[in-house]
């Protein structure tokens, strides 16, 4: 296995063009260095892209937020520019431990496309887009929901580099949240993760709801059935119960070493109810202030 350290975008793209699928990109290494010894990755060359400049910033671009693919989880958790994306910051702050957060990147978390990827539910509820570039075909972007194709599978071509994630700021009367279920208070791969973005109208009815989960299906996904139940309705106990039932039937969790499918299904409606309650309080507090 060879090791190449790239120091510029051009350098990286030319290496990717040369090696194609034999290359594995290495950023913070939090997934790569777990998968290499288990034999889950057998790259011909490891391409270390951490030194590439300009890929770790969080910037406003014409009203939208652009997060560089090499932005660390810690950076995302604390960057003031991401104030409107509480769920993303909460998810980043709950990945692994502090050491993992210091080196792990958003690009790595998304491109690894783990069923339990913490950052994906928040990116999905914010309709984030992912930007890619290749030496031969130039730039393109697509929604994260199209980018993640399945368990550890993405739409990234072998010669492409993910450069950034674009998020449109949410409107008013909106709050978002990410809730993670784990056995411990840190260092956990999610047993279940749920992100909710809720917008209420003047009369307290649901103007828009977006729900996404991780660790309960082959890859993180939006739960549109639940969104449709909530849409336009008043947040009564009956409605929340109905949404919870819908969420249960939308998920296809498995039994694994972390938790059983039955447990995940038992937690999911409760977690949704907690998320609704907490975002509702956030919106009310914002309005009263």
């Amino acid at each position: 296995m060879d090791f190449i350290r790239t120091t510029s975008m051009e350098h990286t793209l030319s290496v990717l063009e040369a090696y194609g699928s034999a290359a594995t990109l290495l950023a913070g290494g939090t997934d790569v260095f777990a998968q290499l010894p288990r034999g889950e990755l057998t790259p011909g060359v490891l391409v270390h892209i951490m030194p590439v400049p300009g890929l770790s910033s969080v910037v406003l671009e014409g009203g939208a937020i652009s997060i560089g693919a090499l932005a660390s989880h810690r950076r995302i958790a604390v960057d003031g520019a991401l104030g409107g994306f509480g769920s993303l910051r909460q998810a980043a702050a709950q990945i692994g431990g502090w050491q993992t957060q210091a080196v792990g990147t958003i690009g790595g978390n998304v491109c690894n496309a783990s069923p339990a990827a913490d950052l994906l539910p928040p990116l999905l509820i914010h309709d984030a887009r992912v930007a890619l570039v290749s030496a031969s075909r130039g730039e393109r972007s697509l929604p994260v929901s199209d980018f993640v194709k399945g368990r550890h599978a993405t739409a990234r071509e072998a010669d492409e580099l993910v450069t950034s994630f674009l998020l449109e700021p949410p409107g008013t009367h909106t709050a978002d949240i990410y809730l993670k279920v784990g056995r411990r208070s840190a260092m956990e791969v999610a047993i279940l993760g749920l992100a909710l973005r809720l917008t209420l109208d003047d009369r307290g009815r649901v103007a828009q709801a977006r729900v996404a989960t991780c660790a309960a299906s082959p890859c993180p996904m939006r739960i549109t059935a639940v969104e449709e139940i909530l849409q336009g309705e008043e947040l009564s106990a009956d409605l929340i119960a109905e949404a919870g039932q819908s969420l249960r039937s939308s998920l296809s969790p498995i039994d694994d070493v972390r938790g059983s499918a039955a447990y995940r299904l038992a937690v999911a409606p409760r977690l949704l109810a907690r998320a609704i309650e907490q975002t509702k309080v956030q919106i009310m507090l914002a309005n009263s202030g």
Partner: peptide, 16 residues
């Protein structure tokens, strides 16, 4: 054993 690594075998953390 089902838990054969310190990732799967969950020791309580300082925060716990």
């Amino acid at each position: 054993y089902l838990e054969r690594s310190l990732e799967a075998y969950r020791l309580p953390l300082a925060q716990d």
